[in-house]
């Protein structure tokens, strides 16, 4: 049932790259998230303004926070995969 062998996770030459990239992406998302909180505190009335296709800013921003999280996650995974392949000579870390 979709089991796979456990791999020894020792030295990973791409880990510092992934850590830095993850940190930047985390910071970007944190700012986006903080923006949502800030608008609610500074100008809550703005949240009820129609923003897109009849939906107000609160709904669009809320859905946006969910969608952006997924987009960022996919970008991060793609970048990590490429780096892992590039440095595969050092240690194979690719997932089947």
């Amino acid at each position: 049932m979709l089991h796979e062998p456990a791999a020894q996770s020792g030295h990973d030459p791409s880990s510092s790259y992934k850590m830095k990239l993850g940190m930047w992406m985390f910071i970007f998302y944190s700012i986006f998230y903080a923006g949502f909180i800030a608008i609610n505190l500074i100008s809550p009335i703005s949240m009820e303004k129609t923003f897109f296709s009849g939906l107000n800013l609160a709904v669009v921003y809320g859905f946006g926070l969910i969608i952006v999280a997924l987009i960022q996650a996919l970008i991060y995974d793609r970048a990590c995969n490429l780096k892992e392949k590039e440095l595969a000579g050092t240690q194979k870390t690719e997932v089947k």
Binding site: E4, P5, A6, A7, S9, D12, S15, Y76, D77, C80, N81, E84, T93, E94, V95
Partner: peptide
């Protein structure tokens, strides 16, 4: 099995 699998 691996850190990459954890990420995925």
């Amino acid at each position: 099995p691996s850190p990459a699998a954890a990420r995925k």
